[in-house]
Nucleic acid binder design. Structure first.
Lengths: 332, 332
DNA sequence: CTGTTAGCGCCTTCAC
DNA sequence: GTGAAGGCGCTAACAG
């Protein structure tokens, strides 16, 4: 691997000049530039990015911490983050935090010790306080799907309360009078807020919230099955169910069928996230789209802005989900 | 950020000694080690990994190039690669190649210029020759889902011919006499091999392959729909269809239903990959499981072995898919 | 416009 | 066991 030194010798110029043409900085006489470029070509030279980082205190890599690398949700986000950042010549170091506090913290520190220029964090277990404190450090951080007071400008957030609200409302508008709800773990803010939206919609339509029609799931398909089973066996009649994500909705489909009920004739079902497979289900699952692709993109742009002062693209920070009605819901 | 120099001063030892305790190398008197550790603690010191890399010519990061970051397939692989490598203290730089030759090549070079210690490549467009040549360079590379002659020991491969074979065979064993096939793009080796397996199974059961019952799709749901449509309209009777992946199978479900046909009573359907949503479909989709989690794991282990001489875990290189029968197929 | 000179923070012989 | 010294390959003032 050729070094900048060899290039400078071959081109008959100084180290500094080579560095200048590499970084496209300062003015270099066209003739000199050509000489250098030729030399680089001849030696098949590529700058050693490690050395560049050490000298410039800039790694051109940004750390991304997300709960999981698999799943229908995070892949899309990642995909958009990577492509936007890549276009800007930045690299991405990805780690999974598994929604576990210890792991999230550890990953964070690893990323930091790698001299990432900025961090995109999609974390659940780290506290607001911790994050706020972190944001005061020298490394810019951007939060995904979270809104922490005191650092709002670094947060790409989704209005989950609104999401829960419109999901439920869309069923109520179809005339449903009694709805069940399969939620995610209550300790997750997202779950909690969606529930609040659900309740608000009910209230708005003059309906009372019935705790017995609420099931706390795990966001996994299995708990959708189980939840629907329990709800149906409760004996309390309902004509529609709002699920806090699409996986659980898929589970609910399963149980509903097992009970001989028809979707949407006997039971309307709506999910949340609008992941790819929502359209593969039969009947096609209605869902709440969260614009996760856009959220990923905006996180990337924020990084570009705060860590590299690239301020050329518009950045949207607050996202409102919207509802996507498909064949899984019907008038009652 | 404290440096090794400050630690050495605080501990009253030399730079070299601090370096030794950091790297756990050479013998250091326990008392001295303690002093150093205390100093590191006091200063809240973390080694600067960039500087470490530059000096040691080792970045402890390994590059991963996959076709896409999203999708039900790659996420799982990534997930296993990351966790295995992470446990070994290595980081992962991920890029997407989008199955495009120019992009794959560019990504590769970027990864290389980042001084990755090794590369895990899941590529479609780069030629065998290119890869073989690359493997002769100084950076160890491991190929995922590919078998290139001359570097077999660096390939984690899947027997797609066998996959196509068992998919078709499982239907034939149920008594089907006429099967359609919805394939991926013929230029992709994977597609091609699966088709070959399909034909072999047919031959084994004394059936003739009918070109009119073959549709070339794109691996996307839409083409599954379209393919099934065309196949059904061809007028040639068939009782089952083998799809080269689950997305297309989902599309085939759709069209089948639209034609008023019941799955599996009127039409047996089997997919390929056995992604998560296969079980969400109704009826549950039979599929060919490819052990992608294991393949990811083995790729990671190979890297550990070839780039870091860690040779403690068994490595399986050749994988054979197996068939997973569910409710989407039935006796004819 | 271009060259000189210090480092960036750490590892690694080589002596002691 | 431990220290001293010389890089790793490049950037960033500062001169000229």
């Amino acid at each position: 691997m050729a070094t900048i030194y060899e290039v400078s010798k071959l081109a008959g110029v100084s180290l500094a000049t080579v560095s200048r043409v590499i970084n496209n900085i300062d003015k270099v006489k066209p003739a000199t530039r050509q000489k250098v470029l030729r030399a680089m070509e001849d030696l098949n030279y590529t700058p050693n990015s490690i050395a560049q980082s050490l000298a410039s205190r800039r790694s051109n890599s940004i750390g991304v911490l997300i709960p999981e690398l698999h799943g229908p949700f995070f892949g899309i986000m990642l995909s958009h983050i990577e492509s936007e950042l890549r276009d800007a010549g930045k690299h991405v170091m990805i780690m999974a935090g598994h929604s576990d506090e210890a792991k999230e913290k550890e990953s964070l520190e690893l990323l930091l010790s790698r001299n990432c220029d900025a961090l995109i964090l999609h974390v659940y277990s780290l506290t607001d306080e911790y994050l706020l404190n972190l944001s005061k450090g020298s490394v810019p951080i951007v939060l995904l799907n979270r809104l922490v007071a005191g650092m709002e400008d670094r947060c790409i957030s989704l209005d989950n309360e609104h999401g829960g609200y419109i999901a439920t409302k869309s069923l109520l508008e179809l005339g449903h009078k009694s709805l069940a709800y399969i939620s995610g773990p209550h300790w997750k803010v997202d779950s909690f807020k969606r529930i609040r939206g659900h309740k608000r919609a009910l209230a708005e339509f003059g309906l009372e919230f019935d705790q017995r029609l609420m099931f706390e799931g795990t966001f996994e398909e299995e708990s959708g099955k189980l939840g629907m089973e329990q709800l149906l066996q409760s004996g309390i009649p309902f004509t529609g169910v709002v699920c806090a994500n699409d996986e659980m909705a898929a589970g609910a489909y399963n149980t509903t069928r097992k009970h001989g009920l028809k979707i949407p004739d006997d039971m309307s079902i709506i999910g949340y996230d609008d992941v790819a497979f929502a359209r593969y289900l039969y009947p096609k699952l209605s869902s709440v789209t969260c614009h996760i692709d856009q959220m990923g993109l905006m996180a990337a742009r924020s990084v570009l802005k705060y860590a590299y002062e690239k301020d050329n693209a518009a950045i949207q920070k607050a996202f409102k989900p919207s509802v996507m009605l498909r064949a899984s819901v019907d008038k009652v």
